[in-house]
Amino acid sequence: MYEELLLTILLTSVPLILAATGELVAERSGVLNLGVEGMMLMGAVAAFGAASLSGNVYLGILGGGLSGMLVAGIFGFFVLGLATNQVATGLALTIFGTGLSGLIGAPLVGKAIDGLPALVIPGLSELPLVGVLFQLDLLAYLSVLIVVLTSWFLMRTRGGLILRSVGINHDSAHALGYPVLWVRLGAVLFGGFMAGLAGAYLPLVLTPHWAEQMTAGRGWIALALVVFASWRPWRVVIGAVLFGGVTIMQLAGQAKGWTIPSQFLSMMPYIATIIVLVAISSRGRIQFGAPAHLGKSFHATR
């Protein structure tokens, strides 16, 4: 009972962790990509297509990530190459991804696949209470590893420092000789790959079929999580599990006959985001952690 609910919460959180971590890196470099939803859908349709045509779910994972990266490349071309408005281009990417994934996915509707198998770790999975942590699938384990590596890269390496400096002040970074646009392109492509993986998690693990708009707004929640996490990778995990937890407890509460209105529980994650924003921003901009040049186009000055 307890284990089943905890497992459901963890699995619901995985796509949020993946997408939010990718977006976090892009935003740290100063690029606001509102196209997460579109990239997730492209990842989902490519992952399902690759998995059902080849019969290999691992190819599905790869296909999902690469497809997300490909559409992120289109976004990068406009935003970085042509210095278009990031908000407008990101929204266009979501609309584009929603439509294109529906078009590509039309022949895949009504097909089913065997999803990604759970990798149960012997011994550890039999521990009381925490055993479910070791009954997840490859992508779920990978998501934790990616958060560890992302955190280490951003905070502990020279590359991470350069990436952050580009996000904080692209003119200074440019003056110091760093290739602002190439750094940002790399961050955007990483964000796209991660959003693609997040999308892939839906048809490969959670609901092994393809349907139009199956992400149902999870890309937007990932965007909110980045703010909730105040641009720190570990807080993304906390936020995602919290969000997953409230979602599942809202459903479980109904089944258990709790008298709290389900609408109230549904809005809890959003209220939590606002509270965190208020709490953090009241302590000043530096603590808040928003990259100073987030969402600003870079024009190289000679």
């Binding site: 009972m1 089943e4 609910l5 459901t8 619901t12 839906l202 959670l206 609901t207 079929h209 349907a211 708009q213 199956m214 992400t215 149902a216 999870r218 979602t247 599942i248 459903l251 479980a252 109904q254 089944a255 258990k256 389900s262 609408q263 549904s266």
Partner: peptide
Amino acid sequence: IKVVWVNSWYDPVKEADAAKVLIAE
């Protein structure tokens, strides 16, 4: 019968989550 409202006609992930919760119950 236990009824769980998902507040959506179409949200595959949430429908799957609600099904898991009901099975756990």
